[in-house]
Design a protein around this nucleic acid. Structure first.
Lengths: 145, 145
DNA sequence: GCTTCAAGTTGTACTATACAACTAGAACGA
DNA sequence: TCGTTCTAGTTGTATAGTACAACTTGAAGC
């Protein structure tokens, strides 16, 4: 196999994965869409941030984020705290319920991955993980992470 | 790194990729959504098939495929041929225009991948490609390829 | 203090999707 | 052979996610 055919394979397989992820996200985790999951994950990681940060980070329109945030708040998964320094700003935080759901979905997603990866030698898992990190870390046009 | 943290990394990085693919597909290739691209690719690969086959293969509802197919036909990218053996069946084929657009989008997508992968040693590309194939080839609940 | 900038919301429109109801054609069985 | 059941596909309806544009409110800078 040459580098060129390897690149074709990578393109094809990543495309297959993306399509599957999209198709199965709703089915597997009806309680939390892929976007909501990602937003909650970001809030957990950062320990709270503004809607504008989420929009910039994920290359989403601020109106889209606004509605997502409204839905997550309605569901009791996040709460808004007015920034005392700047009253335009609402800092978003996970609620306890949000943390629980996030942890639960993460567990369930991880279990699905673990199942797909059973039988892989540890050495291969580690190399695969490193390749993916390297791939995602490389800069892109529409940088969104 | 242990196998467990490698799995976490794989989950996280694949999720990042899926989100990015979804976000950028529309922006980068406005002429062909990711789903349309996939459907056209399948038609090319198989040399024509039925709408029902597409629905089954990609775990989409037949109504969804029906509308996608209608749009692709309207755009002149595919054509329907009534199966003389079974008049319920319409076999879908790429038109010349469809082949051209498919080739063009494939080139553009491949170029994007190639750019992200510049600087990778050939050996790593080949191993990465093999890992992805192996990952996608493993059976899953909602098997869709 | 105006003007301009920034954060967020709301109105509107479009796409992708699913489910349900339907039509048309095929296949099977008594 | 003729009804029953199955299959392929379309259409009606509803929902989610998304973008763009217009707006509101508050902050910052001359």
């Amino acid at each position: 196999m040459t580098a060129e055919t390897a690149i074709e394979t990578i393109q094809r397989e990543m495309t297959i994965f993306a399509r599957r992820a999209r198709a199965s996200a709703g089915r597997m985790h009806p309680e939390l869409s892929l976007v909501s999951y990602t937003l909650l994950g970001h809030l957990e990681e950062k320990g709270g941030c503004r809607a504008t940060d989420l929009a910039a980070h994920y290359a989403l329109d601020k109106s889209t984020v606004s509605r997502q945030v409204a839905a997550l708040e309605r569901a009791g998964l996040i709460e808004r705290r007015l920034d005392p320094e700047d009253h335009r700003v609402q800092v978003l935080h996970l609620t306890e319920a949000g943390e629980e759901i996030l942890a639960q979905v993460t567990r369930s997603r991880r279990a699905a991955f673990r199942e797909r990866l059973t039988g892989w030698p540890e050495e291969d898992l580690i190399r695969f993980a490193a390749y993916l990190e390297r791939y995602n870390a490389s800069p892109s046009d529409a940088d969104s992470d």
